[in-house]
Amino acid sequence: MKDLRYFDPQRRATWLELFFALIFVVALHGANEILTEAHEGHIGAQQFLRFVLVFLPLWWIWAGHTIYANRFDTDSRQHRLSTLLIMFLLIVISAQISAGAQHYTLAVACYCGARLIIASMYFVSRRKHNLHGRFASTVGTVFAVGAAISLSSVLLASPWSYLVFYAGIVFDMTALVLLGGRLHVVPAHAAHLVERVGLLTIIMLGESVISISAALANIVWTRSNAAAAVSGFVMVSAIWWIYYDSFHLLERRKLATGHSILYSHFFLFIGLAILASLIRHAILDDLDPGDFRRMAAAGTVLFFLGKQYGYYMEVPELRPYLLSNTAAVFAMTALMLMLPLGLGAMLGGIAATMICYVLLNLRYRHLVRPRQEAA
């Protein structure tokens, strides 16, 4: 037990975990490309669904490792080597995204390999929390069974192969929720889990800034694309403010399983990816306004739902303010998207609604700061 970082009162995310977050975002780049390709000015529902389905297994590898490291990380050589191998498999998977179904078997094998490595890490760690070894063995077994289900998909033809592959992921997620009572024996390390998701979020925000730079490369500058670039950066800055201004409130909470934070960030990350792609499309002005509106609505809703759910579950005193502030932002976004505006103007409107949320947050800061200082 003495080697577990879980019991370190000054625990912080390790450099390896930061490296993992960087590799995850690099691997995610191929998935994000799906949303940047407008076919004759359109991004259809099928294209958006493909993005989500590609994103899900990549995120679940990161989430599975985060769940393990949160409770069992010793920063040992074995842990480092296993983590580095998982990171390499993530890179291989991302390289197969553009190939589509052609390299499906290789991508599935790498995904299942990463999941089985995480499962084996649990089995090896079953004695680290002394009397709670059954907890590690149970989660390791769940991950191994989920990987076996997904791996069996290579024996089937499309579309059954895809259904079975994602059934393995759904099995993992559902089993962890149903086993929530057992997970309580080793509660999530709140400060570490919050820092892990915060690190990944800040790196994904950096990707949004990269999308601005990429869109501005080799274009003829005009007032419209310059305004779109400014609006995009203002929006990213406002998102940073919204996300991190009250982030410290979660660090001192007892999160039990941590599912409210970890699972909700799946939707938050998808929302961030959508909003990042909108910046690029607004600068290039290459997307149908109707598709832009639908993507803007989806991105805004997913970001706020993903961000707010953790606070709603873990900081009950904020619930009235979370509900009223979110409803106000959704109403303003809907009103703005109904106006006959161009892409750049709509992006500016989204940035304005984000700024409005920052201002609305000032209403409840006096409720939480005194309690934090008292703690």
Rank of each mutant, 00 (worst) to 15 (best):
P316F: 02
G299W: 04
L305K: 04
V329M: 13
V301P: 03
F330W: 09
N325G: 06
V301L: 08
A331M: 14
G310M: 07
G310A: 14
P320I: 08
K307N: 12
P316C: 06
F330E: 08
N325Q: 08
Y311E: 01
M336F: 06
L318I: 04
T300S: 13
L335N: 15
F304Y: 12
G306P: 05
S324N: 12
R319S: 07
N325Y: 00
F303R: 02
M313Y: 01
Y321D: 09
S324D: 08
G299A: 10
P316N: 04
G310Y: 04
E314I: 02
F303T: 02
Y312F: 10
T300P: 05
N325H: 12
L318P: 03
E314S: 07
Y311K: 03
S324L: 06
T333D: 09
E314N: 11
V329I: 13
Y312R: 07
P320Q: 04
Y311T: 02
Q308G: 00
L302I: 12
L305A: 10
M336Q: 10
S324Q: 12
M336I: 15
P316V: 08
A327Q: 13
E317Y: 04
V301G: 05
G310L: 11
A334D: 13
G306W: 00
R319C: 12
G299N: 10
V329W: 05
P316Q: 04
L335Q: 11
R319F: 09
Y311V: 00
L318N: 00
T326M: 08
L335Y: 13
T300V: 12
V315Y: 01
P320C: 11
F303I: 02
A331S: 13
V301A: 01
M313N: 08
S324P: 10
M336R: 11
L335I: 15
R319E: 02
K307G: 00
G299M: 05
L318M: 10
A331P: 13
F304L: 15
T300R: 05
L305T: 01
F304E: 01
L302G: 03
G306L: 03
F303Y: 09
M336S: 09
P316G: 10
V329A: 02
V301N: 01
L335K: 13
L322Q: 04
P316E: 01
F304K: 00
G306T: 00
A328S: 15
T326N: 07
Y311F: 11
K307P: 07
V315T: 10
S324E: 06
Y309R: 06
V301T: 03
N325T: 05
K307R: 12
V329L: 10
A334S: 15
M332H: 12
M332I: 15
L318S: 07
F330A: 08
L318E: 05
L322E: 08
T326Q: 07
E314C: 00
G299Y: 01
R319Y: 05
V301S: 06
Y321T: 10
F304T: 05
N325M: 13
Y312A: 08
V329R: 09
E317A: 06
L323M: 10
T333R: 04
